[in-house]
Amino acid sequence: MRINPKKVNKFIQIMLNVQAFFTVGILIVIVALILVKGIGNINLEFLFSFPEDMGRHGGIYPTIIGTIMLVILSILFATPLGVGTAIFLTEYTKETILTKIIRFGVESLAGIPSILYGLFGFIFFVIKLKMGWSILSGVLTIAIMILPTIIRTSEEAIKAVPKNFRIVSYSLGATKWETVIKVVLPSATPGILTGIMLSVGRAVGETAAVIFTMGSSLRLPTSIMDSGRTMAVHFYILAREGISMEKAYATALVLVLSILLINIVAYYTMNKVVSRFS
């Protein structure tokens, strides 16, 4: 018997529909589970009070501060390096063997899993440079980890700026750097911000690279040489050591909501860029 191609076609279409919605369903289920189980335990007190008894009671205030310190400082460190690299690769050189090697380096950094960043940060910053388990060690490790994302998104954003913007600037007598600063970068800013936001999201959710460099002290950090605990690390410890399921869900909810919010803002900015130049 010959199978009717039209029937196969219809069948496949239905199957693909089912699979696509199943996959989206997984996302919805993940967020919904955390929302439902976590929402009851979240209030202002949870966000702004100190944990007691290893996190069994009380809030997550020091971990929020730890997360914010880690994220802001690593972005401050990685952004100039990343955007600078992107400017160099797009504006200052032609495709040469050097740019090929640099691109290879960036690709390789992007592929290294976070546990190896943790291993490197631990031996290099914590032990060899004697920074100890500190926010500084964590910041430097995470900055290197997010660098490839910032470089690649900035490069895309800079490449998307139309060529005649630059030609007009040069024809008015501007130098290369003036053109980059006053013409190219302002137009590429939303795209660069997208890369930064995506990196923020990654840093907020990171655990493996953070726990071995920044440590997991629950005290409120007062300087960058103090150890500190991020929300992700706190959640991991709560869940793994079975300290408190309620607090774990609540922490997970704060974590996931902040990451989703950050990423949604990132995609919104990216779409604005795409619609602007196309």
Binding site: G205, E206, A208, A232, F235, Y236, A239, A252
Partner: peptide, 14 residues
């Protein structure tokens, strides 16, 4: 679907 990538691995593990 891309947001699925943003969910931290500890949450998947949990």
């Amino acid at each position: 679907l891309e947001l699925l990538a943003g969910i931290p691995s500890v949450v998947y593990g949990f």
